[in-house]
């Protein structure tokens, strides 16, 4: 049996799901195969991948100030919750 294939529109409609690894294995392979062989779609996928990587780097990297923990504990104590 030959592998299922898809056209550009189908591949691009599933691009985010593909990059987020939210597709079924069969669909994932189908989009992967398409991207490997389509000079038109590949740049979109590469840009989208870079875009998502940059979003991942937006995660707050600083430490929580120790004063926050004290403030939370004080508030919980005031309310009689701890």
């Amino acid at each position: 049996m030959s592998k299922p294939t898809c056209d550009c529109t189908t591949a691009m409609a599933q691009l985010w799901d593909y990059l987020d690894e939210e597709l079924t294995e069969e669909r994932y392979e189908m989009v992967k195969e398409h991207l490997a062989n389509c000079a038109h779609c590949l740049p979109h996928a590469e840009f989208a991948q870079g875009f998502l990587s940059a979003l991942g780097r937006c995660r707050h990297a600083g430490q929580m100030p120790e004063g926050v923990r004290h403030a939370v504990m004080d508030a919980l104590k005031r309310e009689g919750l701890v």
Partner: peptide, 11 residues
């Protein structure tokens, strides 16, 4: 927001 979250969580 953290304070509000923990107050609600503990309640």
């Amino acid at each position: 927001l953290v304070q509000e979250t923990y107050l609600r969580a503990f309640r």
